[in-house]
Simulated assay, not measured.
Amino acid sequence: MSQHVRAEIRGPLGIVTLDRPRALNSLDHPMIVALEDVLEEWADAPEVRAVVVRGEGRGLCAGGDVRALRLGPDDDAIAFWADEYRLNAFIAAYPKPYVAVMDGVTMGGGLGISAHGSVRIVTERTQAAMPEARIGFTPDVGMATLLAAAPGELGTHLALTSSTVTGADAVHLGWADHLVPSERLGERAETLIEALAARLAEPGVGEESALAAAHDVVRGLALEASDPRLVAPLAREREWIDEAYAGDDAQTILERLVELAAEGHEGARAAEEAMRSVCPFSVVVTLAALRRAAVMELVDVLAQDLRLGATLIGRHDMREGIRALLVDKDGAPQWRPSRIEDVEPAEVRAAFGED
């Protein structure tokens, strides 16, 4: 067991706490292995009726600890992702209610261990994102499935700009099920845990009804559907986003954003600036990955993620992005190529194992 993963059984609940708060609970390789081990054990434990996953500090999890991948060999990165993606698939198919508390920062790999769960909770403090293109990578952990399935082109917008969204947005996007005010969850979600434990211990709540019971408990704490706090800010931007991000060509999307910005759309102006700042090769690869994911099963998307990861870790951009954004923090990565217009289609196809 990793020192940063705490596991306990409390009544009918198995509770996993990510305990690496100084790193926003970023997942290193031992944490991924520890998570899979404990979830496998509890999947077969009759006393565990449901699992709750939470994080210490300011969020559930800020993602994978990619800084550790920068200096190591490519094979270490690929092994890390292979284990992480197997964990993501296991969570998506978990045989018991998997309750993810996405309070605070929940990004990248943090969404991989939460957004594929069966009971997904966000709060007013949730900050959710798939910001991988900022470091020369691509949205992974199977999130291309959910990005592609988001209303209209909202998922495309988020993936290509590395934008962060609220808890209400996460519900609207299909990344979460319930928005619960943080004070109703209780400190470290203890109020929620007590309510879940009591309900699942009631006579008559069998294995088949445990998931419905878990949703009922969370629904009792969540905001009513009519509460204005459930209105997703991102939904108000959908009209221009759908217009801008249609199609399969990243350069055309960028040109549409320029046109909309010239017409006075401030959201489009910000999106244009964001899209120009992230890695050009990652933008083009990510767009292609999302379009493909729209007609793929999660397991196949995860296999695509691993193939893309093996390509991207071998390029200049990813290690340069990690250096500029996470290590030296100078904010000035030198991308190769430096413009979306200069990305070679043949290199993009090769990243997917084609040609």
Rank of each mutant, 00 (worst) to 15 (best):
L306R: 13
R188C: 03
M275R: 02
L13S: 02
V5S: 05
G72H: 06
A225P: 05
A7T: 14
V52F: 11
M143S: 01
R86D: 15
A115G: 01
T138I: 07
A89R: 15
A244G: 09
S2Q: 09
R6P: 00
K96E: 02
M296I: 03
V218A: 00
C61S: 11
D300H: 12
A195I: 08
P151Q: 05
E202R: 15
K96D: 02
G186A: 04
R86Q: 14
A128E: 05
I32G: 06
G112L: 12
E8V: 13
P280K: 02
A246K: 07
D242Y: 11
I322Y: 08
A159Q: 03
D169A: 08
H178D: 00
T156C: 10
T126R: 14
G353H: 07
D216F: 02
D248E: 07
P337L: 12
R20G: 03
A150Y: 01
R199I: 09
R20P: 02
A198P: 00
A332V: 06
V165L: 07
M31V: 04
R49F: 10
E272I: 03
R70F: 01
T138M: 10
V299Q: 04
A149T: 00
P73K: 06
A77W: 14
R199P: 02
D330G: 12
A346P: 00
R307A: 15
E259M: 14
V33R: 14
A23P: 02
V105M: 08
H178F: 15
A271T: 15
M1R: 14
L158Y: 02
H29S: 04
R70S: 13
V52D: 01
A100F: 00
V5H: 04
S162K: 04
V231M: 04
G64L: 14
A303H: 04
D19P: 00
D37S: 14
V327F: 11
W335Y: 12
E224Q: 11
R319N: 09
L192I: 01
A324G: 09
P228D: 03
D249W: 12
A62R: 11
S338C: 09
L173Y: 01
A82R: 14
S282F: 11
E239M: 12
E224G: 15
D140Y: 07
I193Q: 06
L196S: 02
A235L: 02
A144T: 05
A246N: 05
A250L: 15
A261N: 06
V122N: 10
V231N: 09
R319P: 13
R20N: 07
D28Y: 07
L223N: 06
L308S: 06
T145L: 04
E207G: 01
R54G: 01
C61P: 01
E273H: 13
A310G: 03
H29A: 08
E153I: 01
L173W: 07
P46A: 11
T164F: 06
